[in-house]
Amino acid sequence: MRDEDMNERRIGVRDELRKRIVKGPDGIEFEVDPISDYYCDARPEVRPGAYAGIVESLFNWARSESLWILGFGTGCGAIEMRPLMTPRFDAYRYGIQWRPTPRQANLFVVSGYLSVKTLKRVIRSYEQMQNPKYVVGLGSCTINGGMYWDSYNTIKKLDQYLPVDVYIAGCMPRPEALLAGFEELKRIIRAGKAEGANLYAENFDWYKANQKRVIHDWDMPDYNW
């Protein structure tokens, strides 16, 4: 492939995201720059917990007993999540629910391998979740690439790109392992150590640099919610 061709692709902004002139229904023409108009790209801030320690512990307990998972199946691990809803495992007992929208969820389960293309969507979904939020890396692929360790298109270390609270090893881990992992996460939350969102805000530049190193067609704002 030729060089200028590649440069064009690296900048590679899709047509619907380009700055353009739009004619409104009332006939007035105005300029639209989707990336800056449709998204807010203010940097995330570190949000301290409640002032009183006892209130914060109560909140942490509530957070740990009410884990709402974002239903985003990234890889084959998404299949292992479904049995958790069935009568045999019934994760609802432990206060675990699935929410279909990132706005309402506070636990992101990255289920399996992440291709660069999916990573982009994962980052966007993660940033739309509300602080505090937690990430669970499910399966070997999120830990060191797993069986895709030499693949040209899957990331090898999830914690380079997002702050991970718990890894669940296995290829694939059984639903029992998932439940054990969630219990571990609850323990961490109750101890007040699951501050992934603040970690992300503190080391924002480092995470962004890592993300941009692998995502070549960066056509979104730096932080979008």
Binding site: I143, N144, G145, W149, D150, S151, Y152, T154, I155, K156, K157, Q160, N210, R213, V214
Partner: peptide, 9 residues
């Protein structure tokens, strides 16, 4: 390519 692009554990 994978070794150059991605960080390995």
């Amino acid at each position: 390519f994978s070794e150059e692009t991605f960080e390995h554990r």
